Amino acid sequence: MSAPTQTAPAPAVAPSPHMTARQKLVLTLLLGAQFMIAVDFSILNVALPVVGEGLGFSLSHLQWIATAFALAAAGFTLLFGRVADLVGRKRLFLAGMAVLGASSLLGGLATSPEVLLVARVLQGLATAAVTPAGLALLTTAFKEGPLRERALGLNGALMSAGFTAGAILGGLLTDLLSWRWAFFVNVPVAALVLVLAPSVITDSRPDRRPRLDLPGAATVTGGLLLLVYGLTQAGETGWGAPATLAALLSGAALLVVFRFVEKRAAAPLVPLHILKRRTVIWGNAAGLIAFVTETSLVFLLTLYLQEVLGYSPLATGLAFGVLGLGTVIGGTLGGRAVGRLGNRTTIVVGG
């Protein structure tokens, strides 16, 4: 009598991971904050001529409304990324959101150019704090795998969409209400995040608490600030002006010093071996070129469309919406293009 044949059990199919209700709320709060940061980059662009007229900015000084924000955001993001590791990412995230809400209220109530510029600097500092802290909280809230990939994918898509939404929303608010609402719209969003986040978001820190690396922080922050300032002065007074040359040369010198400081630092802000990778070099170069050309294009087109062609703020916002739509499509298809064509080919074709 033959033994009964035994069939091997069918392999278990791993269920598709689903987010819990708490994870969905965490994702909504963090993505909402990052989306608001992205919107802030463009929401005031279409209102620049109206703001200048209302507060008495001269045409040559109008760029400082955007530059004051960019100086603080670009100069302090790297430093605040390390500060988040020291004091806690959740704590810095909440502090940044509080500053963002308060500075937006100050900007909306501004009655002089000086007050508005102070508000823009504070908004830039808040952006420099919220961006790295929020991204770190997002990655630690989801374990490595499909859920984290989905969360990061949504974050990238919303950051791209923020430019479009900001341009259209800025034009709509300026046309229907006032340019001041381009600031005021941030206040309730920041308040909602501050109310809900403390009980929902779990704090995270690195396993080993790093040191601050004060020399590195001082040199890279100072170098970035001087470079951005020098580029701004070049557009206002010319490349050969003493102030422009002094700022650019000093900024470049400080960044060179930063490189030598990081070589000897026990806990460097930026491990230099990472910067030597080809993918990082290509990515940084392409990102720098894209950011510089995009932001200058938006500033010049804002003035051209409204001051020369006579577009309303809303029409200008809709025109930038077309550019933003291209950004969203490019951001959505970019990952697939990199997978099929490779990093270098995608960057060259995109450029």
Results as ranks from 00 to 15, higher is better:
Pro4Tyr: 06
Ala8Phe: 13
Ala10Thr: 15
Ala12Met: 08
Val13Gly: 07
Ala14Thr: 11
Thr20Val: 14
Thr20Lys: 14
Leu27Met: 08
Thr28Gln: 08
Thr28Ser: 12
Gly32Thr: 08
Ala33Asp: 00
Ala33Glu: 00
Ala38Ser: 12
Phe41Trp: 08
Ile43Thr: 01
Gly52Tyr: 02
Ser58Gln: 10
Leu59Glu: 13
Ala68Leu: 04
Leu71His: 04
Ala73Gln: 13
Gly75His: 02
Leu78Met: 13
Leu78Val: 11
Ala84Asn: 00
Arg91Leu: 07
Ala95Asp: 10
Ala95Thr: 15
Ala95Ser: 14
Gly96Cys: 06
Met97Gly: 02
Leu100Arg: 01
Ser104Asp: 01
Gly108Glu: 03
Leu109Val: 09
Thr111Gly: 15
Val115Gly: 05
Thr127Trp: 02
Thr127Ser: 07
Ala128Gly: 09
Pro132Ser: 08
Pro132Ala: 05
Ala133Cys: 14
Leu135His: 08
Ala141Trp: 01
Gly145Ala: 10
Pro146Ala: 09
Glu149Gln: 15
Ala151Pro: 04
Ala151Trp: 02
Ala151Cys: 09
Gly153Thr: 07
Ser160Ile: 05
Ala161Gly: 14
Phe163Asn: 03
Phe163Gly: 04
Gly166Lys: 02
Leu169Ile: 11
Thr174His: 00
Ser178Thr: 08
Ala182Glu: 05
Ala182Pro: 03
Phe184Glu: 00
Asn186Leu: 03
Val187Gly: 02
Leu192Asn: 06
Val193Asp: 00
Leu196Phe: 12
Pro198Ser: 09
Asp203Gly: 09
Asp207Arg: 08
Arg211Cys: 08
Thr219Glu: 04
Gly222Lys: 03
Gly223Leu: 01
Leu224Gln: 01
Leu231Ser: 06
Thr232Lys: 10
Gln233Leu: 10
Ala234Gln: 06
Glu236Leu: 09
Trp239Val: 10
Gly240Met: 08
Ala241Ser: 13
Pro242Phe: 10
Pro242Gln: 12
Ala243Pro: 04
Gly251Trp: 00
Ala253Trp: 06
Leu254Asn: 00
Leu255Pro: 05
Val256Phe: 11
Arg264Tyr: 09
Arg264Glu: 15
Ala266Gln: 13
Leu269Gly: 01
Ile274Met: 12
Ile274Leu: 15
Thr279Glu: 15
Val280Ile: 15
Ile281His: 11
Gly283Ala: 14
Ala286Pro: 02
Ile289Pro: 10
Leu297Pro: 09
Val298Tyr: 05
Leu301His: 01
Leu303Asn: 12
Leu309Arg: 13
Tyr311Thr: 05
Ser312Glu: 04
Leu314His: 06
Thr316Ser: 14
Leu318Met: 11
Leu318Asp: 07
Leu323Arg: 08
Gly324Met: 01
Val328Asn: 07
Thr332Asn: 13
Gly334Thr: 02
Gly339Thr: 12
Leu341Asp: 13
Leu341Lys: 11
Gly342Gln: 11
Thr345Arg: 14
Ile347Asp: 02
